[in-house]
Amino acid sequence: MVQFESSVKHVPYTQERVYTKLADLNNLASVRERLDELKSKFPGKVEDLSFDQDSLTLKVQGISLTLRIIEREPMKCIKFEGDRTPLPMNLWIQVLPVSDAEAKMKVTIRAEVNAFMKAMVSKPLQEGVEKLADILALIPY
């Protein structure tokens, strides 16, 4: 089991607004509309994105990943589990208040990989968790 954490991202919105938007993935329609913009900011990374209330499927460098929400801890954390992923994994988004008008978030991925695979997947997973946090920090909540 290996774990990768993004750096802490500050967002200029309240903890409640950030959590509420992310807890129902249908609220990410605005992100879907800006997919072309994301593709240009992260070339060769995000190719496609689709979602419903509880799951998110993204295609990254030819690999399709589906993450499903398995737990919501109101205002604090949303936990996902890999549904159709190349390796067993969990992802969670933590949201904490900084002030009345600002929150901070961190994305964590925990994946089951053997020692041989660890060398191959460590860099892409660390980059992926950081890029996901960057994208989440850019969302207008």
Results as ranks from 00 to 15, higher is better:
141 Y>I: 07
45 K>N: 15
115 A>K: 11
22 L>M: 08
5 E>S: 11
6 S>E: 04
117 M>A: 02
2 V>H: 07
123 K>P: 09
54 D>L: 12
78 I>Q: 13
106 K>E: 03
117 M>P: 04
44 G>Y: 01
4 F>Q: 09
36 D>T: 04
92 W>K: 00
136 L>V: 14
111 A>H: 00
17 R>M: 15
106 K>I: 11
102 E>R: 07
106 K>G: 03
60 V>N: 07
43 P>L: 05
77 C>H: 03
93 I>N: 07
39 K>F: 00
102 E>Q: 07
111 A>P: 01
74 P>T: 06
44 G>T: 01
30 S>E: 15
57 T>W: 13
15 Q>C: 02
79 K>Q: 02
15 Q>K: 00
126 Q>G: 01
28 L>M: 07
141 Y>G: 01
90 N>H: 05
125 L>H: 05
86 P>I: 06
26 N>E: 13
25 L>Q: 13
100 D>W: 09
1 M>N: 11
22 L>A: 02
66 T>F: 03
57 T>M: 12
67 L>A: 07
53 Q>D: 14
102 E>K: 00
84 R>V: 13
15 Q>W: 04
75 M>G: 02
132 L>P: 13
51 F>V: 02
81 E>D: 03
95 V>P: 11
139 I>H: 11
14 T>Q: 04
105 M>K: 00
83 D>L: 14
5 E>C: 13
80 F>Q: 07
93 I>K: 06
11 V>M: 00
33 E>K: 08
121 V>S: 00
96 L>Y: 05
59 K>I: 10
132 L>T: 15
129 V>Q: 00
105 M>D: 06
3 Q>S: 15
117 M>N: 08
74 P>W: 01
108 T>A: 10
78 I>M: 02
85 T>S: 01
3 Q>E: 15
14 T>W: 00
64 S>Y: 01
100 D>L: 12
43 P>G: 06
18 V>W: 08
126 Q>E: 03
126 Q>H: 09
13 Y>F: 14
55 S>N: 11
131 K>F: 14
11 V>Y: 00
135 I>A: 02
101 A>L: 14
103 A>R: 03
137 A>H: 01
27 N>R: 09
137 A>R: 02
75 M>W: 05
92 W>P: 06
21 K>L: 15
81 E>Q: 14
78 I>T: 10
53 Q>C: 07
11 V>L: 05
135 I>P: 08
98 V>E: 14
34 R>L: 03
77 C>E: 09
54 D>G: 10
88 P>T: 12
95 V>L: 08
1 M>Q: 08
130 E>W: 09
6 S>F: 03
120 M>Y: 04
15 Q>M: 10
100 D>S: 07
20 T>V: 10
15 Q>H: 09
116 F>Y: 04
12 P>S: 06
89 M>Q: 01
91 L>T: 08
84 R>K: 15
33 E>L: 13
69 I>L: 12
74 P>I: 01
132 L>Y: 13
